[in-house]
Every structure is written in structure tokens, then in C-alpha cells.
């Protein structure tokens, strides 16, 4: 494992998000962090990418504590695509992708042949060659996200971390982005670790899933092992039927709305002790699964 969080405590000022959290990103795989809002999955990703310094414990990259490495050093080994990206005004796709070479260049060193090649390659594998001269703000959501991913690729790292790369995208664009990441993993051997909101997308694309709740890692493993009705009840507070995806055979969670919930009472009964939503909603009656909300 090249990248690993060891017993980290993560906090913003005095607000502690996670305590004693350990997770290791499996090399050469696509791993996905899921969990309800505020569970600390994005925070965990930030600490793994050196954007947030743990207040206790450490993140280890290639056997070294990440905070001891310079930010430039880290940028040469892992790329992070944060959430909520806003491209500078009137910038072309190619100009944007060139930023990926930043960690490899000194202030005065001009771009070399190797830089040029990797930028070309990044544009090519993300399918952005024909759009290289287009302005980023004129692209569709999926194309824009592919341009940002091309920027990360141009960093030339084997590790790529992404924080909710599909948020706010139409489903066709979500598939476009996730297919691209899948291809990068299979064809280029990139290790991909990302936070996703949609657990069914996670199930389809992940080799390894981390499930987080209240700042703790509650489960990890293959989608089939991890994504059960019990997990969804326990972590997301929803009643659901988990079926096998008719095409991929992976688990597919079908949430059940309130009225039909009695029909699936056997599921609820099976997971009764853990459906208690009181942990996330103190003060509310602990035996009313109807107060549980579906993830947005």
C-alpha cells in the first residue's frame, strides 16, 4: 500500500471530524469512499492528499509521513481533484491541462519535450484532443470534468484522488466520467481513490469500498461483501432491497419509500438493532425508521 492513513484524528479548528481513523488505499485498484453527508469521507480524502494535516496520527505515502514531504514532492506522486472546481475565465482546455505540469517545473524552466508529450497523452486518453482549443467554460458538464481529470493525468502520477467527481452531473455524464476513470485504472494501471455520493455508482465501479459513518470506517471490502441491506440501514438509515444488478451482477440498492416499508418488514426486522437513527438525529424517537432520510 503506497498511501495509508494511520490512526489519524482530523479536525477543522476544534471541530473534530474523525478520530483514530485508519484506512489504506489498495494499489492498482479503484476504491470508493461512501457514507452519508458529514461522515468525514471528503475530509479523509483531504488528509490523504495532504490538503489537511491530521492533528494526531499520520498519513503515510510511500513509507514516509506525508506532512514531512514538501507539497511539491507530494504533487509529483499523487494528484488530487477537489470538489467545486471553477476554471479561470476564458481558459482553453489545453491551457488548463498544462497546469498539471506545474509541480514538475521551476519558476523559470520552460516546458520541455517530456512535458509536451504528457500533456498530449492526457488530452488523448481523456478524449479531449478535438476540444483542446475550446474554452473550458463552454464545455458540457461531462467534458469539463474530463478536462479537469486530464489536468490530473498531466501530473503524471500513478495515484489519483478525486472528491465527488460526478456531483452535479447528469447521469450520462456521471457514466462518462466514471467510465474514463475505470479505463485509466484498467489500461494505465492508475490507482484511483474517490469519494462518491451515489452508492449504486460506487457498487458498479469500485473494486474496493470504504463505508464511513460519523468519522469512522465501519466497513470495507468488495461491493458484494460490503453493500448489503444491513449496511444501508445502518449507515444511511434507509430501508432497502439489495438485488443483483441484472447486467453486472453487482449489488444494486433499491430504497423503499415509507408506505411500502411494511412489505419489507423482514428486512427491517433483520437489522432492527442497527436501524436506530438516534445516533445521527438525537432527540428523535429511536424506533421510527420513517424519520430516516434518503440520501440526496
Amino acid at each position: 500500500m503506497r498511501l495509508e492513513a494511520q490512526h489519524v484524528t482530523l479536525a477543522y479548528d476544534r471541530l473534530v471530524i474523525a478520530e483514530d481513523l485508519s484506512l489504506a488505499i489498495p494499489d492498482g485498484k479503484v476504491s470508493v469512499l461512501i457514507g452519508p453527508n458529514g461522515c468525514g469521507k471528503s475530509t479523509a480524502l483531504r488528509s490523504l492528499s495532504r490538503l489537511l494535516s491530521p492533528t494526531a496520527g499520520q498519513v503515510v505515502l510511500d513509507g514516509e509521513e506525508i506532512m514531512r514531504l514538501s507539497t511539491k514532492d507530494v504533487a509529483r506522486r499523487l494528484a488530487i481533484l477537489p470538489q467545486m472546481l471553477v476554471a479561470p475565465e476564458s481558459i482553453t482546455v489545453e491551457d488548463l491541462v498544462w497546469f498539471g505540469r506545474h509541480p514538475h517545473r521551476g519558476a523559470l524552466r520552460s516546458a520541455g519535450k517530456a512535458d509536451k508529450e504528457i500533456v498530449e497523452w492526457s488530452l488523448e486518453v481523456t478524449g479531449m484532443i478535438e476540444m483542446r482549443r475550446r474554452f473550458v467554460d463552454h464545455l458540457s458538464g461531462g467534458q469539463r470534468q474530463r478536462a479537469w481529470i486530464a489536468l490530473c493525468l498531466a501530473q503524471g502520477t500513478d495515484l489519483i484522488l478525486l472528491d465527488e467527481p460526478t456531483t452535479f452531473l447528469d447521469v450520462a455524464y456521471q457514466l462518462e466520467v466514471l467510465d474514463l476513470l475505470h479505463e485509466l485504472n484498467v489500461n494505465q494501471g492508475k490507482t484511483v481513490a474517490m469519494v462518491l455520493h451515489d452508492f449504486n455508482m460506487a457498487s458498479e465501479y469500485a473494486d474496493h469500498i470504504f463505508v464511513m459513518k460519523d468519522g469512522a470506517l465501519v466497513k470495507e471490502g468488495s461491493p458484494t461483501d460490503v453493500l448489503t441491506a444491513a449496511t444501508f440501514a445502518d449507515v444511511f438509515g434507509i430501508t432497502s432491497q439489495v438485488v443483483s444488478h441484472p447486467v453486472s451482477g453487482r449489488p444494486l440498492c433499491i430504497p423503499v419509500k415509507g408506505r411500502e416499508r411494511s412489505a419489507t418488514a423482514q428486512h427491517a426486522a433483520a437489522t432492527e438493532p442497527s436501524t436506530d437513527p438516534a445516533a445521527s438525529a438525537p432527540g428523535e424517537s429511536s424506533t421510527t425508521p420513517t424519520t430516516a432520510k434518503l440520501p440526496a
Binding site: R46, T71, D73, I80, P82, M84, L85, F99, P103, L108
Partner: peptide, 23 residues
């Protein structure tokens, strides 16, 4: 002018700029 490219990197937002190795 020496900081020109770094100024552009800062324009990408704090997180991405840090991810690109900029202190």
C-alpha cells in the same frame, strides 16, 4: 513576473493549487 505562473495556479483555487504542489 517571476511569480507569474504561480499566480495562475493560485487562480485555480486553494485546494487544487496545493494539490499541484504550490505552498
Amino acid at each position: 513576473v517571476f511569480y507569474a505562473r504561480r499566480l495562475d495556479v493560485l487562480g485555480l483555487g486553494d485546494d487544487l493549487a496545493a494539490g499541484l504542489g504550490e505552498p
